[in-house]
Design a protein around this nucleic acid. Structure first.
Length: 264
DNA sequence: ATGACTTGTAATACAAGA
């Protein structure tokens, strides 16, 4: 039996409920991890989400910013979250399925405008967040479990993870120090970079196209910011991988598109 | 040349995204 797992930064759940319904109808994921829901738990659109047919709904949101949620067709044995960098800013949720698979849904800080940790507190927060993730992966011995770490990690670590490597080396999201932090997270598990397990590093692979750059999608000015990382025990279970680029052409889309993994 | 847009909040501009 296959488990289909999806991650999607929807950039406001309430603005994107119709897109989520369309994605569910077309991709039929068993578990959906959402980021940037931008809605408090009190205002969560329970009725619209219930109509999608996911009996298990785990939410961890706040008003206006950030926010994560997990929808599951499979029964959950455990639901959990933890505070990162001492801030309860709704960037993480964890569930364990009844069969033992652990799913960690993350929204890593974007990092602000300047890639300078002394001048930009948001960039320092981002690097500290990634460091804390790597420490957690190592200390909790994630490699001993069947675990997936996924979400909007807000770093495009490889040259082919952005549309213009040279031009973007000094842009937040693609600086060498951020790529090093991502590499440390991968090594700390160790964790498999599922996207690059299926798509060779020689080929461009993107999951985000900005709103501000005119016709960024049409020109394919993309970045790979959304990731699925898997513990080594799952290596033999990785069956298929797909980036649902087409959602970026839908009317009033999120700037991120869904990333999907099939696990045996 | 990440400038150009989109979102939420709250009151017509501002913060934030990356």
């Amino acid at each position: 039996m296959t488990l289909r797992l999806a991650t999607w930064n929807v950039n406001s759940l309430r603005k994107r409920t119709a897109h989520l319904a369309r994605f569910v109808a077309e991709a039929r994921p068993d578990v959906i991890c959402l980021q940037e829901t931008k809605v408090s738990d009190a205002a969560f659109p329970h009725d619209e989400i219930a109509a999608l047919g996911y009996p298990e709904v785990v939410i961890h949101g706040q008003k206006g910013y950030n926010g994560v949620a997990i929808l599951s067709r499979r029964p959950l044995a455990k639901r959990d979250k933890r505070v990162w960098c001492g801030r309860d800013d709704r960037r993480h949720l964890c569930v364990r399925l009844a069969d033992g698979l652990e799913v960690h849904n993350f929204y890593v800080p974007s990092g602000g405008p300047t890639p300078d940790r002394a001048a930009n507190e948001k960039f320092a927060h981002k690097l500290d967040f990634l460091t804390e993730m790597a420490d957690w992966a190592a200390r909790s011995r994630i490699a001993r479990r069947n675990a997936v770490v996924l979400g909007d990690l807000n770093v495009a670590p490889l040259e082919t993870d952005v549309w213009n490597h040279k031009r973007l080396l000094r842009s937040v999201g693609h600086t060498p120090v951020e790529s090093e932090h991502m590499a440390r997270l991968h090594a700390a598990g160790p964790l498999i970079d599922v996207g690059r397990h299926f798509v060779p590093a020689e080929q461009p692979l993107y999951t985000w196209w900005g709103y501000r750059f005119p016709q960024s999608y049409q020109r394919d000015y993309g970045w790979r910011l959304d990731h699925i990382l898997a513990s080594p025990k799952l290596a033999g279970a990785l069956k298929a991988f797909r980036v649902h680029r087409e959602t970026r052409t839908w009317e009033q889309p999120s700037d991120h598109v869904p990333v999907v993994l099939d696990l045996a």
